[in-house]
């Protein structure tokens, strides 16, 4: 088991290395480097941040400082589907809070918790995605944008996502999108209860 984890780590840092190299190991590209790493792993694992700091020759505190300053970065694993409910002024006055309640209720997220335990869904509130003409707006993984949403319409969207997940929601399927992350994910589960593979 230990060897496997080592390999997983090796694979992870290979990827990080290539990202850092692509940005010429320049400190001014730190934000772009972190963005690419986050796209790869869906979050910023702490050991990767330390690794980046060493690679760029800057203190880990600097990297950590940047990673915690910008809202885009997350130090906790995010779900496969990131549901963003816009709460810009226009969306706010068109009652976006109802949409937020609905997502929390549907996904069983309590206050203070933004990602479901099975790492399938993450709820985020964004301050404006610039589609104010269509307020209120909800996006799923940034590529699906739903405008002029009502709780009823959003419920249909969510139900569809949830049922899709039940149909083909196996670990292998998740593996198609990113190669580093599922390993990370399994590992987290294994350390949790030792049988993470069966959980979903």
């Amino acid at each position: 088991m230990g060897k496997e984890i080592e390999q997983v780590f090796q694979r992870k840092f290979d990827k990080v290395n290539s990202i850092v190299d692509k940005h010429e190991r320049k400190v001014s590209n730190l934000i772009a480097i972190l963005q690419e790493i986050q796209t790869e792993y869906r979050y910023l694992p702490e050991e990767v941040l330390t690794y980046v700091a060493t690679a760029l020759g800057i203190p880990p505190a600097t990297v950590y400082g940047v990673a915690t300053f910008y809202t885009q970065f997350s130090m906790k694993p995010k779900g496969k589907y990131i549901i963003k409910v816009c709460d810009g002024t226009a969306c706010h006055v068109r009652h976006s809070e109802k949409l937020r309640y609905l997502v929390r209720e549907k996904l069983g997220l309590d206050d203070g918790k933004d990602t479901t335990d099975d790492l399938r869904f993450t709820l985020e509130t964004v301050s404006c995605i610039g589609a104010c003409g269509l307020a209120p707006v909800v996006t799923v993984n940034d590529d699906e944008v739903y405008g002029q949403m009502t709780p009823e319409a959003l419920a249909i969207v969510l139900d569809q996502l949830i049922s899709e997940e039940h149909l083909d929601g196996s670990i292998e399927e998740k593996g198609e999108k990113t190669d580093g992350f599922p390993a990370e994910n399994e590992q987290a589960h294994e350390s949790d209860d030792g049988k993470g593979r069966q959980r979903c």
Binding site: V27, L30, Q35, F69, Y70, Q72
Partner: peptide, 26 residues
Amino acid sequence: VKEGAGAFVCGEETALISSIEGRRGM
């Protein structure tokens, strides 16, 4: 093209410069 990472304060010019330099956008 430089992409921000979600910080409203980066619209302020000195903060924006810090951000392009790869630092906290203050």
